[in-house]
């Protein structure tokens, strides 16, 4: 019944109601002098980030947060690493050395990209 409904919706030109509609990547615990939002981190510091995925419920016209497999990569690896955190949606960024770096997150075909400048420790 549900599949039939999806098929009808898809044929009508709409996305399936349980497909990931958008994702957010945000700082859940800031590093000293840096956040994902300001695009900065200090070398040698750590920062916890959270990824959230949402589906669009066409019935109620709102977004709903869901748990889906998250693909996350950071690099270059000698500069920025990402390691799983204490929950599936949490990740820890580890900044190793100064320079530009990137973070890419993908959840069911929806992706997000962030640029991070890793700065040297002040003298």
């Amino acid at each position: 019944m549900r599949r039939a409904l999806c098929l009808v919706v898809a044929l009508a030109g709409c996305s399936a109601p349980d497909a990931v509609h958008r994702i957010t990547v945000s700082t859940s615990h800031a590093a000293p002098g840096g956040t994902l939002e300001n695009g900065r981190m200090l070398e040698g510091t750590a920062m916890e980030i959270a990824v959230a995925a949402y589906t669009e419920e066409t019935t109620f016209h709102d977004s709903r947060r869901v748990s889906r497999p998250i693909e996350i990569t950071a690099g270059p690896p000698e500069r920025l690493r990402v390691i799983k955190g204490a929950a599936p949606e949490l990740f820890i960024l580890l900044a190793a050395s100064p320079g530009p770096s990137t973070l890419d997150v993908r959840v069911e075909g929806v992706s997000a990209h962030r640029d991070l400048m890793i700065e040297a420790q002040p003298p």
Partner: peptide, 12 residues
């Protein structure tokens, strides 16, 4: 200022 993390398995 440098980070030290607590690793348990493959998680921080």
């Amino acid at each position: 200022t440098f980070a030290f993390y607590l690793m348990n398995g493959d998680e921080i």
